[in-house]
């Protein structure tokens, strides 16, 4: 390295753009290798300008890169802070959604077989996915920051509903796409919809008193037992017929009403 260094006068003239190009080029080459001369230039840029640019750098560096689901939410107009709260949910993250897809895919492939059990397994599994997703989306175990959240002004009830709605929507969309893509397109491919709503809202109501994970497990297990018991002799889609659907609608309705009255229990 040369022993030559800039003096203040030269630094000022360089910073002000008053050096001729060749001399400036010389200075620039020297600057790359000399921190002493670089520091002479620091006072030549207004502090406020450097701070302003730094604030932008810091924000870009700190701000986490949103996951695919969060980006999707923002794209459809959800506020970025709401998207953040939703995006932190296990069951709205990629691994969970991928696992759900695989599970549904197998069920759908099974129902490609003409046996009645095939379609039945698809219709049975589809409502369990949102129940499981909701059960791990909030509460002491599902949300690591749950206890901190309880003492925060944000309504935990609202957060829970938002997450439940997001989980329900994503798993329903998945089941619908899969059903339409792989199964016959008559009414039966959507027959899981009301059971989904019923089981999910039931899980939410129970969660006002018990741990959401236990509630989800209990509801899912009950559902499985009922399906197996009613179809043991002769598999049929009776559970998903008109009377059954009316029943699911009733369960959904009652659960939602109860949920409204028990909303205080969530915060």
């Amino acid at each position: 390295m040369s022993t030559w260094h800039m003096d203040d006068g030269l630094a000022v003239r360089y910073a002000d753009g008053e050096l001729n190009p060749t001399l400036a080029a010389s200075v620039e080459a020297h600057l790359l290798a000399c921190d002493q001369c670089r520091s002479l230039l620091a006072p030549r840029v207004p502090r406020s300008r450097l701070d302003r640019v730094w604030a932008e750098v810091a924000d870009a560096v700190d701000t986490p890169a949103p996951g695919p689901f969060e980006r999707l939410l923002r794209a459809i107009g959800v506020h970025d802070h709401t998207a953040r709260l939703l995006g932190a949910t296990h069951s709205l993250r990629l691994p969970w959604i991928a696992a759900s897809t695989v599970a549904l895919l197998f069920a759908a492939l099974a129902s490609g077989e003409t046996t009645r059990w095939g379609l039945l397994s698809y219709l049975t599994l589809a409502p369990i996915l949102p129940v499981a997703g909701v059960a791990v989306a909030f509460g002491r175990d599902g949300d690591p920051a749950h206890e901190i959240g309880l003492a925060a002004p944000y309504s935990m009830f609202r957060l829970m509903l938002m997450r439940a709605a997001a989980v329900l929507t994503s798993s329903s969309a998945l089941a619908l796409v899969m059903g339409l893509g792989l199964l016959d397109d008559d009414w039966t491919v959507a027959a899981w919809l009301l059971p989904s709503l019923a089981l999910t809202s039931l899980t939410l109501v129970l969660s006002s008193r018990f741990d959401p994970r236990h509630c989800g497990a209990a509801v899912a297990a009950t559902w499985l037992v009922v399906v197996v018991a009613t179809n043991l002799r002769e598999p049929s889609l009776a559970m998903f017929g008109g009377a059954g659907q009316a029943g699911y609608l009733a369960i959904t309705f009652v659960s939602v009403v109860l949920l409204f009255f028990r909303r205080k229990e969530f915060s």
Partner: peptide, 29 residues
Amino acid sequence: PGYQRGFTVFEFVDYVAILKEMVERRARH
């Protein structure tokens, strides 16, 4: 206290800040 262990330090505090009703992004950050 539970932490979302996959979050960065900034992400976690930002998450709690949202729960504390800090809505305006820049001011929150």
